[in-house]
Simulated assay, not measured.
Amino acid sequence: MQRPVAGNEDWGANWSREGFADQSVRQVVRVTGGGSQLRIRLSNAYGATPLRIAGASVGRSAGEAQVWPGSVRDVSFGGGRSATIKPGRDLVSDAVELRTSPLEKLTITLYFADPTGPATFHRYTTATSYRASGRHLGDSDPGAFKESTNAWYFLSGVEVSGVEVSGAASAPRGTVVVFGDSLVDGTGATDGADDRFTDKLSERLIAARRPLDVVNAGIAGNRILNDSPCFGDKALDRFRRDVLDRPGVRSVIIHLGANDIGAPEMGDPCMGAAPRVSAAQIIDAHKKLIRAAHARGVKAVGATILPMKGALFPLYSERGEKVRNTVNHWIRTSGAYDSVLDSARALADPRDAALPRPGYVFRDGLHPDEAGAHAVASAVEIDQL
């Protein structure tokens, strides 16, 4: 989750600053695991006032804002149909009886009768959220939902449990959290196609019949050492909330450091403070995350920082490349991480490791396209998760 921030040409419009009043918001999400029950997790982490949820429902997505008729279920909170979330707090719903299949898309609809004020949200998604005037929790028809953005509002998780849709008994399941920046968040992925590398990893785990579901905890632009107005709290501060407090977490994959290295070159006011950082500072921060994970019995997998030289915007510098190479060498060879995801090698041009492989990157010259996402997911040693 992130603080409210205005939309722009690059990231698109969003409703976080204005919030909602007498409006229904329908958000489409894909779950990675199937089950017989689910809960939704809502967040008022950055709210200045109590957030009143006047109603909520969940249903099976039939595409865009449409819901399969007969699949809508009311969501309750402590037995009631409404709830209030204090500033800075989260709320988990009661269990909803709804059988789901792995990789199924659901709609989560929230109704806000009273003004919410600025909304805690996630700024960039490859999904679409919809807004309607008035209360439309049970609508299967999408007609009332006339407005859309590519952000999520107040919704910070969908937690699936129970027996899968087949009804067959299954091994106890766990969670692997993928934690990091835009490589994780999905910059470069096709809207609505679920082709981020975390999506590819989910599909790989399901095909291999591994009892692990995937949580994407990426924030585009995020840094390990510094907060920013638009790109979330620094990873050192959000690690507990976004990783360790997730239910059933067994392992975490960490990709961080690229924005710390590149921020001084960008000149982006959205970054806030952009000090030059050393490899030693980034490595020390990684060590802190590893220690925090191990203290909770969670395996830590280090992902090497992706090639940065090909970016078609100010990011690369010779000094920064030396820092990236030093950090990546430490991730590969130090033994501090339990396992290594060598995303840098998976994406690198064989002729110049500072550049991305042709055909593996989005038009910005940095982030993986679908082929690149597949290459990164294929490089994960799933036996180590």
Rank of each mutant, 00 (worst) to 15 (best):
M1L: 06
M1Q: 02
R3C: 06
W11D: 01
W11P: 00
A13C: 01
W15K: 01
R17K: 09
S24R: 07
S24M: 02
V29K: 05
R30S: 07
V31E: 02
T32V: 08
G34F: 07
G35D: 10
S36T: 03
A48F: 10
P50V: 07
A54G: 13
V58S: 03
V58W: 09
A62L: 09
Q66S: 15
G70T: 01
S71I: 04
V72R: 02
V72D: 00
D74Q: 15
A83Y: 13
T84K: 05
D90V: 00
S93N: 04
A95Q: 12
A95H: 08
V96R: 10
E97Y: 06
L98Y: 10
L98D: 06
L103Y: 11
E104L: 01
K105T: 11
I108M: 11
L110Q: 07
L110S: 07
F112P: 04
F112K: 03
P118F: 09
A119D: 03
T120M: 07
H122F: 04
A127W: 12
A127N: 11
S129D: 06
A132C: 06
G134I: 04
D141K: 04
F145Q: 03
K146F: 09
E147V: 03
N150I: 01
A151G: 09
Y153M: 00
L155M: 01
G157C: 10
S166Y: 12
G167V: 07
A168T: 08
A171Q: 12
P172R: 03
R173Q: 15
R173T: 03
R173N: 08
T175R: 01
T175Y: 05
V178C: 11
G180W: 08
L183T: 00
A193E: 15
K200F: 13
L201E: 03
S202E: 01
S202T: 09
S202I: 02
E203R: 15
R204W: 03
L205G: 02
A207P: 02
A207S: 12
A207H: 08
P211Q: 14
V215M: 10
N216A: 08
A217H: 02
G221F: 10
G221T: 03
L225Q: 10
N226M: 13
D227S: 12
S228F: 12
P229W: 08
L236Q: 12
L236A: 14
D242H: 09
D242R: 04
V243G: 02
D245E: 14
G248V: 02
V249D: 09
V252T: 11
I253S: 06
A258C: 12
E265P: 06
M271E: 09
G272K: 13
G272A: 07
V277R: 15
Q281M: 11
I282E: 11
A293R: 04
H294M: 09
H294F: 11
V298G: 05
V301S: 06
V301I: 15
G302P: 11
T304C: 09
I305R: 08
L306Y: 12
M308C: 10
M308A: 13
F313V: 06
R319K: 13
E321Y: 15
V323W: 13
V323N: 13
N328Y: 14
T333S: 15
S339R: 08
S343K: 01
D349K: 02
D349Y: 05
D349M: 06
P350I: 01
D352G: 07
G359K: 07
G359C: 01
Y360T: 00
F362H: 10
R363F: 14
R363H: 11
A371K: 12
G372P: 01
A373E: 04
A377H: 04
A377T: 00
V380D: 02
E381D: 13
L385R: 05
